[in-house]
């Protein structure tokens, strides 16, 4: 997926601030996630497995989700700004976090204890919902954080010196467009 993203020029845009936009979106997305955790009783179960209070679980979760959001903004780059597809990319990211975090790391950190029953359902739903919310809000968070075109266009690297190759080796892509004569 990462190759696919970079191959099409989906690196974060030159005026974009992907880390801060992702982190803010990640924090905002914890609201529905915590609500689902609470609804299914997963929050209490998680806290008991980790042997900490629910409040501390939430307090520890928010910066983690901010970090995860920043990673999302960085990895998905331009794609994260897509209003139509953002929720889906975020949902996929949330699912990956569930598979890596809740399924793998949590049992390892707690000596093999893991949520089951409704708590387990709440856990997957909350992370998928977190991802969907992250992806859905990111395009709207990132817009006001953009650097203006006016100021970004004054940077020296986009000026005449750009005519020289960045790495001294010319174009990066091979040209293949054979055409056969009749």
């Amino acid at each position: 997926m990462a190759i696919f993203l970079s191959a099409h020029g989906y690196d974060p845009g030159p005026t974009q601030r992907p880390l801060i936009a992702g982190a803010l979106s990640g924090v905002i997305a914890t609201v529905p996630a915590v609500a689902i955790l609470h609804l299914f009783g997963s929050l209490g179960v998680e806290a008991s497995i980790l042997r900490i209070s629910e409040l501390i679980t939430i307090a520890a979760g928010v910066p983690l989700m901010a970090l995860a959001g920043a990673v999302y903004g960085y990895v998905f780059g331009r794609a994260a700004n897509d209003v139509r597809g953002g929720w889906l990319f975020g949902m996929a990211f949330g699912f990956a976090l569930w598979a890596g975090g809740a399924v793998m790391v949590l049992p390892l950190a707690s000596g093999g204890q893991t949520p089951a029953g409704e708590a387990a359902i709440g856990l997957i739903l909350s992370l998928v919902a977190w991802g969907a919310a992250l992806g859905a809000v990111h395009p709207f968070i990132h817009r006001p954080l953009h650097e203006s075109i006016e100021s970004a266009a004054k940077r020296s690297e986009v000026g005449p010196s750009a005519a020289a190759s960045k790495n001294g080796h010319g174009p990066r892509r091979d040209l293949t467009s054979p055409r056969e004569f009749p």
């Binding site: 030159p14 953009h146 006016e150 970004a152 940077r155 986009v158």
Partner: peptide
């Protein structure tokens, strides 16, 4: 399939060449 050749991408976020073109015109 998107061909990333624009001054802006399809989210209407600028590409580097969009900034370069503005720089060129302003100059």
């Amino acid at each position: 399939i998107i061909d990333p050749v624009g001054l802006f991408d399809l989210n209407r976020d600028p590409r580097e060449v969009g900034l370069s073109y503005k720089h060129l015109i302003d100059a």
